[in-house]
Design a protein around this nucleic acid. Structure first.
Lengths: 351, 351
DNA sequence: CTGTTAGCGCCTTCAA
DNA sequence: TTGAAGGCGCTAACAG
C-alpha cells in the first residue's frame, strides 16, 4: 500500500490496483467496517462526525460499493431485465427508452437483451437475467416459456406490446384490434373493397389482433373476407417487398394495402414506389405503428399511432409497483388506445 | 423442503421460493459443492458419470448459477457497460445494436445507460457501472471525466463516435472532418457559395471536426468563411427549426444548408418545407449521418453516410481484445471512413 | 478424481 | 453509538 493520505488517482500504467473495499475506507477513517457500512448506507446509527469522516475517506479513496457483494448479502438488487427483439427497429428502441427513463428515475438499472426474434436467444437472455438475479423483467415475448421460466423462479414479469403468457403475468398492450379496425374502416368508408393485409407474423397477439380488427371491419361493412388478400411475409430482407409485388400482380383489383407494422409499411411503401404505383392515386396505403418518416414522405402515410414510449413507461411503472409490493395479487393488463392519423396516402376510391 | 425428487417447477401462488443453490444441486446429486461446481463449470476434474448426475440434478431443480456470487469469487465478470446519449435517436440505437451483437456472440452481456446528454447523468451512469464491477465500457462521451473515472479504477474504456479523453483511451471514430469536407466540396462544386452550417454542439470532436471539414472545403475552393452562416442551435425542441428560419430570413442569399447531424437534418428539412422553400430548386440540403428517411423523401437527401452499426461492432471488438489481454499497451484509435451519398436534394446553383 | 477449507465484499444481527 | 461475528453463493487451493 502506497503512502496513505496521498492516494494517487491511478497513474498511467499502474497495475489494475485492487479497488478500495469498505474495509479500506473504514481503516482510513479509523472505524470498523460495520460503522463504515452504516455511515455509507445511511442505515443504522452513526455519529455525525464519524459519518463525515467516513464519507470523506470514501470520497478520497474513490470508493464505490460493490453491487455484487451487496446484492449477495441483501438478496436483492435494483436491476431490471429488458428483453426486446430488435434495437434497430425504432419501435423497440422507443420502448426501451420509455422503460429506461422510468427505471432510472426510480434508481433502477436496465439490463438490455436483444433476442433478434429468435426464441433460443430469448431463452438464453432470460437465463442470463436469472443468473443476474434481477427481481423483475419487462419483455416483448416470443414464446410463453420466457415468462414461465421467470415467474417460476419468482421473478416478476411484465409483457409489453404483445402477450404470450395468457394473463399469467402483467401486461401493457395496445389495442391492436381496435387500431386495425379503425384503419380498415377508414379504407372501407373511402369505398375500398379489395384491401390487402400485409404482415410478417401471426403468432403474436399483435398480428392476430390486427388481423381480427381487419376482419371485424370487413364484417361491419358487410364486405367478404378473402384469405388470398392476407399476405404472410417471411422474415428475410426483401421478403416483404417481393410478397407485396406478387400479391399486386396476382390481384390487380386490390386498391388498398394495410401494412400491419412499421417494417411492413416501409417495405410496401418502397415496393409501391419501385413498381411505379402512385399513392394514393393508384393505390391507398395505411400502416400500423406510426414513425416520423410517415409524415415526411409525400404523401404522408395514414397510420395507426401507438403510444410507444408511454407503453414502455407504463410497463416500467407497473413493474416497479410490483417490486415495491405496492401492487399485489392478480395479474393486471393495461390497455392503451391507439389513434388513427389520416394523411395523404388514403383517398376515396374513384369508381 | 418439499418432497425431494418431485420438485415442482413452481406452482401458481407458491411463495417466492428460495432459488436453488449449488449446495442444493450437490445434495441432490450426492456430491460435494465443489464437485458440483467443477461439473457445472467444466473447470477441473469430474468423473463422467458424476458430471452427468450433477447436470441432471441441476436441470431438475432449475438451477441457475448466481452471477453475483460467481463474480465476487472470480473477481471479474462478463458484463460490459455502454453509455450512450439517447436511445430514441436512431444513430445511438444502431450503435448499441452493433455493440450488443458482438458482445452477445462473445458471451458478454451489455448494460445500457442513457445519459440524455446530461453530464451529471453520465457520471451517475459511470458510477453505476463501477458499482457493477464491469471490466469494460463503451461510451459516447460527454465529458473527459467519464473515461477518467473509469480508467482510474482500472476499467477499460472505448470511446465511440467522439473523443473526449484525448488519446488516453481507445476510440473508434468516423472521420468527421473528411465527411464534412466531401459534403461541402460537393456543394461548392455545384456552384454554391453561401452555405449555412447548422449544428447543435461544438463541444465534441464530431461538431468540431465537421465544422473544420466545412471550413477546409471552403479554403480549398477559396471561398471566404463567414461565421454568420454557422448556426449554433440550442437543444430544445423546435430550437433548430427556429434558428434555421431566422438564419434564412437574415441571409436570403444562402443557397445551401449543411445539417451536421441527423437531428439537424430532420429539423432543417421540416423547416424548409414549412417555410415553403423547395428543395433543391430554392435551396440545396446535405446532411451528416444518413438515415432511411433520407432516401424515402422526395427528393432524397444527399448525405454523409457513417457505418454506424459497424462502428459499434468495432468498438466492441476492440474492447473484447483488451479484456482478453490479446491487445495490450498504447491506446488505439480506429478511424472509419464515411461515404458521401449524392441524392436529389443538391443541385447546381442556377446563376 | 473428490471433499474440506477458506474467503471474495458487504451487511446485519447481537453484544458491548 | 460502535465493533465483532457470521454468512449470502460460489470457486480456487489444497489435502485426501
Amino acid at each position: 500500500m502506497s503512502a496513505p493520505g496521498r492516494e494517487r488517482a491511478g497513474g498511467e500504467d499502474s497495475p489494475p490496483r485492487r479497488r478500495p473495499t469498505i474495509g479500506d475506507v473504514a481503516r482510513a477513517a479509523g472505524v470498523s467496517p460495520s460503522t463504515a457500512s452504516r455511515a455509507l448506507t445511511g442505515q443504522g446509527y452513526a455519529a455525525a462526525p464519524v459519518k463525515a469522516r467516513v464519507l470523506a475517506a470514501a470520497d478520497r479513496l474513490g470508493y464505490v460499493p460493490d453491487e455484487f457483494a451487496r446484492s449477495l448479502k441483501r438478496r436483492t438488487n435494483r436491476l431490471v431485465g429488458v428483453v426486446i427483439s430488435d434495437l434497430r427497429n425504432q419501435f423497440y428502441a422507443d420502448l426501451a427508452a420509455g422503460i429506461e427513463q422510468v427505471l432510472c428515475a426510480a434508481g433502477y438499472q436496465m439490463v438490455l437483451v436483444n433476442d433478434d426474434g429468435d426464441t433460443d436467444r430469448e431463452l438464453a437472455g432470460v437465463r442470463t437475467l436469472l443468473a443476474m438475479r434481477v427481481p423483475g423483467t419487462i419483455v416483448t415475448p416470443l414464446s410463453p416459456e420466457a415468462a414461465a421460466l421467470l415467474t417460476t423462479q419468482g421473478v416478476h414479469v411484465v409483457e409489453v406490446d404483445r402477450q404470450m403468457a395468457h394473463d399469467r403475468c402483467d401486461a401493457v398492450l395496445v389495442d391492436s384490434e381496435h387500431g386495425a379496425r379503425m384503419a380498415t374502416a377508414h379504407l372501407l368508408e373511402l369505398g375500398h373493397r379489395r384491401i390487402a393485409f400485409v404482415i410478417d407474423e401471426l403468432e403474436w397477439t399483435t398480428g392476430v389482433g390486427r388481423l381480427a380488427g381487419y376482419q371485424q371491419a370487413l364484417r361491419d361493412h358487410e364486405v367478404g373476407f378473402d384469405p388470398e388478400l392476407v399476405v404472410r411475409v417471411g422474415f428475410g430482407e426483401g421478403s416483404a417487398a417481393a410478397a407485396t409485388a406478387a400479391l399486386l400482380a396476382a390481384h390487380p383489383e386490390v386498391t388498398a394495402v394495410f401494412a400491419a407494422n412499421n417494417l411492413m409499411a416501409e417495405a410496401v411503401w418502397q415496393e409501391l414506389r419501385r413498381g411505379g404505383r402512385r399513392v394514393p392515386d393508384d393505390i391507398s396505403l395505411v400502416a400500423f405503428d406510426d414513425l416520423p418518416w410517415m409524415t415526411m414522405v409525400q404523401p404522408g402515410v395514414s397510420a395507426v399511432s401507438q403510444p410507444v414510449v408511454d407503453m414502455g413507461a407504463r410497463a416500467a411503472e407497473l413493474l416497479l409497483a410490483r417490486l415495491s409490493g405496492e401492487l399485489r395479487g392478480e395479474p393486471r393488463t393495461v390497455w392503451l388506445e391507439p389513434r388513427f392519423e389520416r394523411r395523404g396516402s388514403t383517398r376515396p376510391l374513384a369508381s
